[in-house]
Amino acid sequence: MKQTYAIMLVDDDPIFCHLFTKLLEHYPNALLKTSVFKNGEEALQYFRMHQHEQISLPDVIFVDINMPIISGWELMDFLQSESMELIQKIPIYILSSSISLSDKHKINDYSFINDYLTKPIFKKELFEVIDKCLSGLLPHR
């Protein structure tokens, strides 16, 4: 029986969310349950409510940058300023279509971000990331 892991995707693009979810359905090493949050605000509300419930927290988080209401970077700021414990425990990836160098370099401002991934993302690259995260090696920044 495959072990089940929770993946969180914070992105406002419904097409990408659909594709991302479909991709993870084919992950071979575990059963991945993907939760989609349409913007940073929704994700932040969730974290605030469930940060102390280990069972409710995802195992890996993917966050887009450009989103309405609260952007990806703004969400990172909140997580950092509120010193949420989860950021020390859960691997966090930025997943954006932006190829701007300024965006890519900005992850250096947040020590808890594991990496910057660029859309489009395909099965092989995504599964390697998931493998790393689930192998227990992560998070090690």
């Binding site: 450009n66 954006s96 932006s98 701007s100 859309k119 489009p120 395909f122």
Partner: peptide, 22 residues
Amino acid sequence: LNHIVAHNLRAPASNIQMLIRQ
């Protein structure tokens, strides 16, 4: 505009590429 091209236009374009693969 540079940002729009670098990000906003890439979003649907990358979706298209991923959709084609799918």
